[in-house]
Amino acid sequence: MAVLAMRDALNQALREEMKRDQAVFLLGEDIGLYDGSFKVTRGLMKEFGEKRVLDTPIAEEIIIGTAIGAAMSGLRPVAEMMTVNFIMVAMDQVVNAAAHIRYMFGGGTKVPLVIRTPGGGGHQLGAQHSHSHENWFAHVPGLKVVAPGTPADAKGMLKSAIRDDNPVMFIENEGTYAVKGEVPDGEHLVPLDKNEVKRPGEHITICAHSRMLIVAMDAAAELEKEGISAEVVDMRALRPLDMAPVIASVKKTSRLITVEEGWRSYGVGSEIASRVYEEAFDYLDAPVARIGAAEVPAPYNKRLEKIAFPGKADVIITAKALLGKN
C-alpha cells in the first residue's frame, strides 16, 4: 500500500487498465504531449503511443462522439473533459446519444465509455470554470455517475468504470487532485453502486461526496471534540444511488445533513432527502438539512468566493443547530 495523491491514483488506474486491455484508449484535450491539464494522464502517451492516448482538437462534440462510436465498435474509450463546464458543449452527445443509444436501439448495442471530468470551485476561476454539475447527469437514466473523494476510491472506481459496459460519468474535483491517501497496489476494484460509512458515529449523519467528503470528515473531527459523534456517509455512487447506508445511519442517528459543492436547488441533497422521507420518515427527529453553494454564478473575488462555497464551518454550525446545541 502506497501513499498517493489523487491524480497519481487515477494515473495508476489508467496505466493498469491500459496494460490489461488493448481496447482501452484515452482521448481529450492536451492529455498526451502536454501530460494533461491536471497531470492525471502524465507519461501515458510516452508509454502507450499516440494511437492509445489521442490529443484532440478543442472540439467537445467530436471528443464525446468519437468515444461513443468507438465504444459501439468494440473499444473502451476513456474521454477526458478538461472541466465539467466544457461538457456543456457536448451535452447532446452525452445525454441524447451516450445515455439513450442502448435503450432506443432496443439493446442492440452497448456503450462502454468513461467520461472523466473535474468540477468544483475555490480557485478564483469565476463563473465558467468553478461549478459542480453531477446532479445534471445523475438525473438521466442510462448513465452511471460516480464521484469518489479518496485516492483509494478514485483508483478502484476508475478501474471498475473502465470495465463497466455502460457510459459512466466519472466526476473528479480540481480541489482534490493533490489530496493524498493510502492506495492499494495492483488489482483494486471498488464497485460503482455502493456507498459506505467513512466515519462511524451516533448523534447525526452527514452525507457528502467528492471534495465535500473531505470537508465533512474534517467537520466530524471537530464535532467530536465538542462531544458530538457524527457518522459520515460517502455518497460516491450517485447513479445508481445507493441509499442503504444512509437509511441505516438515519435509523440510528435520526438527524441528517447533506453536503454538496453544487447549488442546492434540484440537487443531490434534494434527492437524498426525498428518499429518506420516503423510506425513513418516522425515524427523523428534525427536517433534513441541505448544505450547498450559494445560488450565484461563482464569483471571482477571493472573499466572495469563499463564502459562496460550503466549508467546514457550515457543516459544524448546521450540525449543532440540528442537535439544538447552539
Binding site: E61, I62, I64, T66, I68, G69, A70, S73, A97, T109
Partner: peptide
C-alpha cells in the same frame, strides 16, 4: 438499428451522428 447489418442507427438530432460515425472509423484504424 441493426448491429448484424452494420446499420448503426437512425439519429433524430440533426448532425449528431457524424462525430459518432468518426468513432467507428477511429476503431477501424485502431
Amino acid at each position: 438499428f441493426s448491429q448484424e447489418h452494420r446499420f448503426y442507427g437512425g439519429y433524430a438530432i440533426v448532425g449528431q451522428a457524424l462525430p459518432i460515425a468518426c468513432g467507428s472509423a477511429y476503431a477501424i484504424n485502431y
